[in-house]
Design a protein around this nucleic acid. Structure first.
Lengths: 258, 258
DNA sequence: ACAAAAGTGTTCGATCTACACCCATGT
DNA sequence: ACATGGGTGTAGATCGAACACTTTTGT
């Protein structure tokens, strides 16, 4: 990996800009057509894949740090990132297993043992969900690759990142139970089969067709549009769309779904 | 306030032991006889009251830090502390409004602007609930007083501590809805009226006598003991006790209560 | 007897679950 | 006509809210 001047600067004096002990890790779920993926990045110095994340800057808020991190590291904008847990096992630091020589041979930089990069970090976990076809990630200075992975075909993850993913998934499911989802994951108009597929994928279980649609329609979250999708070979399904006001209300008030 | 040698040492070189940017704040709910209180401490240098809390030590886990903090600061042992949120507004630091002169006149110590105590901190919020009659708090070196306050008669709180309390209370209520509580808050044997009073106080609403007991008995969490409390003037209530196995199961599996 | 608190029963309606059934359409 | 997926209807069980009722006990 080529060590840019920018990266060198980051290694040597990043602690002036960033707080050395507070890291943000983001679990970005991507959904499309019955597939649930998460976004991972390949750090240039680690063999395992990582969650996209970054240090918190001095004098910014946690939320700002998370939002900035995701834009910086993946180029994806307008994600609604939600905090779900802090992770703070001892000796939790990205480069804990490197000694000075190893680091030198990898980067050509001599970093002292007390360099800020080797400090213990507490990580604040955030998660978000997006349509992975609409969200094309880019990469940042510390990374060499960035990709969507199927949730049940994840590669080896660095540090405690597997645990972070597991907790995020658990939180996502609980959340889904109490508030609707879909605004950013489905097109403007969609069929009942499509939204049910979304829920079934996220919850990892089958739902009853009749009961599912009844629920969403009774709650007033969905309404039938006067249009059908043109399929062939069988009956064409109607389009539906979200009823914005009721959707928002369900987000605030909470519902019980499924 | 007298500045002990220990405190002086803490101010000057605490950063060697503690991570300057990570703070733990604990909301300790105390219940007894229809009263819900929280535990606050009076810091010797601030006019407002604070949540008991402390810095995280280098190379300990978040959970260890929280557990140690509560023992150190309040002397209360065996609390089950549960993480609920991280708070990280910019410029969030306990002594942010002090300048060098003020600090000197208060403490007799000359601390530089870049002293670790003035660093921005992210706080990880934990909460727990205990019986406040059984939990007599003691105080620590930075504090001059420690006391239980009724939840709706809280004094002015430092920094964002009011927000932390509000979030903790919200989390407690949601949690109560999904899992039983009472093991450490009620005596071994208690009456239905007593456990209902507990729930009504925590949830801040009245519950129906019949439905409440039916629910807990149907779930198998409570069982009737062959004993009555001796009251006078009217019918004596039966004692009940928790059925440990079902209680634990409800904790793990989740229930819906009320 | 009656007041006060303990404890039980019952009704009504909403909601969930499971499953059967009908509909539309291309071949 | 039939296969395929879209969509609806309904019986039975379960649950929850509200409230009336019975029991026990001291005065």
């Amino acid at each position: 990996m080529v060590i840019s001047a920018e990266l060198k600067e980051f290694f040597n004096s990043g602690y002036l800009t960033y707080i050395p002990h507070i890291y943000i890790d983001c679990v970005i779920f991507g959904y499309h057509n019955r597939k649930l993926k998460i976004l991972l990045t390949k750090n240039g110095f680690l063999s395992e894949w990582c969650l996209p994340g970054g240090y918190m800057k001095r004098s910014e808020s946690l939320q700002q740090a998370a939002d900035r991190t995701i834009v910086d590291r993946t180029g994806i904008e307008n994600l609604y990132l939600q905090q779900f847990r802090a992770f703070g096992d001892p000796n939790r630091t990205r480069y804990q297993n490197f000694d000075e020589e190893q680091w030198y041979s990898l980067t050509g930089l001599r970093l002292l043992k007390n360099n800020w990069l080797f400090d213990q970090t507490v990580s604040i976990g955030f998660f978000a969900i997006t349509d992975f076809l609409k969200s094309i990630p880019s990469i940042d200075i510390e990374s060499i690759e960035s990709a969507w992975f199927n949730i049940n075909e994840l590669p080896e993850l660095a540090m405690d990142h597997a645990e972070i993913v597991a907790m995020a998934l658990k939180t996502l499911k609980i959340q889904l139970y109490h508030s609707p989802i879909g605004y950013n994951l489905l097109p403007e108009k969609f069929t009942l089969a499509e939204i049910q597929a979304l829920y079934e994928t996220l919850l990892e279980k089958k739902l009853d067709v009749s009961n599912f649609s009844k629920k969403l329609l009774t709650l007033g979250i969905l309404e039938k549009a006067n249009e059908k999708r043109n399929t062939s070979g069988h009956r064409s399904p109607y389009f539906y769309n979200f009823v914005r006001s009721n959707y928002e209300e369900a987000l605030n008030e909470g519902i019980v779904l499924v």
